[in-house]
Computed example of a mutant assay.
Amino acid sequence: MKATSVTSVKPIKHTSSPDCRHVRELLARIGAKWSMIVVTRLATGPMRFSELKRDIGTISQKMLTSTLRELERDGFVTRTVTPTIPPRVDYTLTDLGVDLLGPLEALGEWAVRNQHRVEQARERAREVGV
Rank of each mutant, 00 (worst) to 15 (best):
R88Q: 11
V128P: 02
T82F: 09
A111V: 06
K10G: 03
M36W: 05
V9P: 04
L100C: 02
A125P: 03
R29P: 01
I56E: 00
S35M: 05
S35K: 07
L100K: 00
V39S: 03
R73H: 14
T84L: 11
E127N: 11
E72T: 15
M63V: 13
V23L: 15
M47V: 02
P86N: 02
D99A: 15
R117Q: 13
T58V: 09
P11E: 05
L107N: 07
A3I: 05
I56C: 00
T4I: 14
R54M: 07
P83N: 09
R124L: 14
R117N: 11
Q115P: 02
V81Y: 07
T78D: 12
R54V: 04
P11R: 02
P83K: 10
H116E: 12
T58D: 15
R41G: 01
V6L: 15
K62F: 09
E105Y: 11
D95A: 09
L101D: 04
L27S: 04
T58S: 12
V6M: 08
R29Y: 06
V9R: 11
D90Q: 08
V39W: 00
H14V: 14
L93S: 03
A43Y: 02
D55Q: 10
G31S: 01
A125K: 07
S50R: 10
V77Y: 01
G31Y: 02
S35P: 01
H22L: 12
T82V: 13
T7A: 12
R122P: 00
W110V: 08
Q61V: 13
A106L: 10
R122D: 06
E119C: 07
G31H: 04
A43D: 04
R24F: 13
K33M: 07
S60R: 04
S50F: 08
I30S: 02
S66I: 05
E127W: 05
P11C: 04
E109H: 11
L107M: 14
G45Q: 00
T40Y: 03
G75T: 03
R69S: 13
A28T: 12
H116G: 06
K10Q: 14
G108V: 03
V98M: 07
E51F: 04
T67M: 00
K10T: 15
G97I: 01
L107D: 09
E119K: 11
V128A: 05
T44V: 13
L52D: 01
K62A: 14
R122G: 05
D95R: 08
R117E: 14
W34H: 15
R126Y: 08
I85E: 14
L104W: 01
L27P: 01
A3E: 10
A125S: 10
I37F: 05
R24E: 13
H22N: 09
T92P: 03
R24C: 11
R41I: 03
G97R: 01
V128D: 04
P11T: 00
T94G: 04
R124K: 14
W110A: 14
E109N: 12
G57Q: 01
D74F: 09
A106M: 07
L107E: 06
V98D: 06
V6D: 09
F49I: 04
L104E: 02
L26F: 13
M47W: 03
L100V: 02
V81P: 00
W34Q: 10
E51A: 15
L93C: 06
K33H: 13
K10F: 09
S17H: 06
L26T: 13
D95L: 07
Q115C: 08
K33W: 10
E25G: 08
T82M: 06
R122T: 06
